[in-house]
């Protein structure tokens, strides 16, 4: 998939709480909530520890990122995005830089990321299918 629709880019850049689904070693699903941002047409997230979700991605890169659009009063089913993606992990200090960029979206523009700068992991999500309900979803 080459280009993300502008409405989806806007939603991602607004700082939605993103539910990341990965597959555990026993084949069961696992969900955790993460911050996300954009890098070109990829979605990215930053992590300072080798958490279960990263170990899962390392074993099976198939993931879903799902997140709600802002609440619409009176809507029966709220708009949301569900992105099927192929995730890749890159170690490095860029993870902290990304978290320090995202904290300004998710917390406040003058907040510095509270953990000391150090090594971590950037996860890059190459979006393969856009689903959900909203202007970004086909059908």
């Amino acid at each position: 998939m080459s280009e993300l629709p502008p409405e989806l880019r806007d939603l991602i850049e607004s700082g939605p709480m993103a539910h990341l689904t990965t597959i555990n070693a026993d084949g069961s699903p696992q969900v955790s909530v993460i911050w996300i941002g954009l890098d070109g047409d990829d979605v990215v997230s930053g992590h300072l520890g080798w958490y279960v979700k990263l170990r899962n991605i390392d074993r099976d890169p198939r993931v879903v990122l799902s997140f709600d659009a802002p609440r619409q009063p009176g809507a029966f089913m709220n708009e949301y995005a569900a992105l099927r993606a192929h995730a890749t992990i890159t170690p490095g200090e860029e993870a902290w830089d990304l978290l320090n960029r995202l904290v300004k979206v998710y917390v406040s523009p003058d907040t510095e990321f509270p953990a000391p700068r150090g090594p971590g992991f950037v996860v890059r999500y190459s979006v393969e299918r856009i689903g959900g309900k909203g202007p970004w979803a086909a059908g």
Binding site: T21, I23, G27, R62, V64, S66, D68, Y80, R84
Partner: peptide, 18 residues
């Protein structure tokens, strides 16, 4: 609150919907 429910597809990959 909206919850996000994850299940496993027949091919072993994840599926998630609110």
């Amino acid at each position: 609150n909206y919850a996000h429910l994850a299940t496993v597809r027949p091919d072993g990959g994840p599926h998630t919907v609110p």
